[in-house]
Amino acid sequence: MSTVEIRNLHKYFGKLEVLKGIDFKVASGQVVCVIGPSGSGKSTLLRCVNLLEQPTSGQVFVDGIELTHPDVDIDAARRRLGMVFQQFNLFPHLTVLRNVTIAQERVLKRNRSEAERVARENLERVGLAEKADSYPAQLSGGQQQRVAIARALAMSPSLMLFDEPTSALDPELVGDVLKVMRTLAQEGMTMLVVTHEMGFAREVADRVVFMDGGVIVEDGPPKQVIGDPRHERTRAFLSRVLNPDQVS
């Protein structure tokens, strides 16, 4: 069964059509990377999957449940989805540990000690067990992003959404975050990742989706989409991303 299925998704912001009929699936355990130029609708697509944006039309299914159905309890449905943001969005007034426990307690109704056990496990997973009592402002960007990943993982999601998780990081901090994501992929987590990290996409993704102008232009294994793109738009984009210094 697919973990995510999107059918004929359209999204308008006012008169601006940002998503123009998106269809795709992510099978359980798959890692799908979404690439494409700025403004092509990648973030909007991701945000439509967990309904941070309300799709204008079309359907979104997660684990066979239609999230776009009017009767669905969206708060319950979102528990199946972890989201990692470009800007981390840790809760600055809470310690790292509390960042990871608060939703477990308030949403999953786990008791404090159970929540802390799960939190410490997941902080261990991202290599930050010793930062449990720090505040987000005391961490580097890379550490903050790893805490954000642990926070999402602690909810035991069946799908993780990443929106350019390394774009706000200093170059030397990118590696640590990608390493955590790579491990996650190896452990079989289903992941939908918007990224500009072509190396990561080539190495980790089962599929790469190239978006441009609100449509999916190309969708296939990384060897094909990145290595041997069929569409001129994909080729143009990739040559810009892979050789940023070249004047085209």
């Binding site: 941070l52 979102r78 989805l81 972890g82 969005n89 308030r106 949403v107 999402a152 909810m155």
Partner: peptide, 26 residues
């Protein structure tokens, strides 16, 4: 920042819960 509410909602918190636990204290 708007991202605070979004992060809380993406963790499954209902609007009021997110307000009370995350936004209002800040």
């Amino acid at each position: 920042p708007k991202g605070q509410m979004e992060a809380a909602r993406s963790l499954g918190m209902p609007y009021m819960r997110a307000m009370v636990s995350i936004v209002i204290p800040q």
